[in-house]
């Protein structure tokens, strides 16, 4: 009973801290990009916190979709998936049914990617086929050909990205486990930060040998970053929501509260993936009962979003001509790191 209560309190604390914190990240990201573009840019809270609150206070409208209720429920699934992905990486869930392992993390990430396929196949935005312009006039080309919504095309791209795009992240995610020769997160922490397991609540366990400072760890950290960009669908890997043709992809029809939900999912992913990076590669887990440890985790997890925003500011959209070689190349580096780590 006591264990159960401890898990419950730890989970609630983790959610209460991570959700508001993640709402600051897009503002920081946007500000850095704006500075690179020689302008002032929006205030830090605007793209995250205030946008979410504003969408929350908007009047609900029914989305145009094949199955509107299913389409709406996807946002709730998304938030649940994100939160469980995060909880699996926090220490009190490590022992439950071995969810705190490489399998738990990768399974949840795969579900999150699959959401985009479902969203894309459902949404029927007004901005493409159903626009009231006389397309099929007499003499027009291609009468009788299947007319597709851009979101459905985005869903097809999402499947391709699932197949090849997510490889780098998964390979990089396996490397720390391969070094620890175990599938559990607790073992990965143990080889990096043995002090952590018998420290009191006010102490600060400094990791003695972080994986990121070894050769395979460093290589896989780079690959992890590329995978992070791909999984968040940011430029240059944002083909499934490229502004130039599919506009925003499957999330086009979310309005009001659902859009607020989507913003929360996206911002949480921004934070969770970098928090997992700090946990696995530096060895400082997000532990709500050891505040110093948690704060260091939060501060270090700023590294990834900042690097992301600089990377995004200097890159165009890649088409599949460039995505396949890039993703496969970085997967090869990841595989090389995996081989070194096993020797």
């Amino acid at each position: 009973m006591e264990v159960f209560l401890k898990i419950l309190i730890a989970s609630i604390l983790a959610i209460i801290i991570s959700v508001p914190y993640s709402l600051i990240l897009p503002g920081i990201e946007r500000k850095i990009q704006a500075r690179i573009q020689q302008r002032i840019g929006p205030p830090i809270l605007t793209p995250g916190l205030w946008a979410v609150l504003k969408f929350w206070y908007k009047k609900d409208v029914e989305p145009v979709a094949y199955l509107p209720k299913f389409y709406k429920s996807l946002i709730i699934f998304g938030i649940i998936i994100c939160i469980f992905l995060f909880l699996f990486s926090t220490p009190y869930w490590w022992q439950i049914l071995s969810w705190g392992s490489v399998l738990g993390l990768i399974g949840m990430l795969k579900l999150e990617e699959f959401l985009y396929v479902l969203m894309g196949s459902q949404s029927q935005s007004f901005l493409s086929t159903t626009m009231p312009v006389p397309d099929l006039a007499k003499g027009a080309k291609g009468i009788g050909i299947f007319r597709e919504f851009v979101e459905q095309h985005s869903a097809e791209r999402a499947i391709k990205m699932m197949a090849v795009g997510s490889l780098p992240l998964y390979i990089a995610l396996i490397v720390p486990f391969a070094i620890a020769k175990s599938g559990m997160i607790s073992d990965v922490i143990k080889i990096q930060n043995p002090l952590y397991f018998n420290s009191s609540w006010f102490s600060l366990p400094i990791p003695s040998s972080p994986i990121i400072f070894t050769v395979p760890g460093f290589l896989s950290a780079i690959v992890y970053f590329i995978g992070y960009v791909i999984l968040l669908n940011e430029r240059p890997f944002n083909i499934l929501k490229a502004k130039v043709d599919v506009i925003e992809g499957g999330i086009l029809e979310y309005a009001a509260k659902l859009r607020a939900g989507y913003y929360i999912i996206r911002n949480l992913m921004l934070f969770i993936l970098s928090s997992i990076f700090v946990t696995l590669f530096i060895g400082i887990p997000f532990d709500p009962f050891i505040p110093l440890c948690m704060i260091i985790n939060i501060v270090l997890s700023l590294i990834m979003p900042i690097a992301l925003s600089v990377f995004v500011a200097f890159s165009p959209i890649f088409t599949f001509r460039q995505i396949y070689p890039t993703a496969i190349g970085f997967s090869a580096i990841g595989a090389f790191a995996l081989i070194i780590s096993m020797i």
């Binding site: 901005l127 493409s128 626009m131 291609g142 050909i145 007319r147 597709e148 502004k243 130039v244």
Partner: peptide, 23 residues
């Protein structure tokens, strides 16, 4: 030709009102 994807006239890539139908 598998399908048609049509974009415009309100679209971020074509600010002006015109319509492109890609087959």
């Amino acid at each position: 030709i598998e399908k048609e994807i049509s974009i415009g006239p309100v679209h971020p890539a074509l600010i002006e009102p015109y319509r492109i139908r890609f087959f």
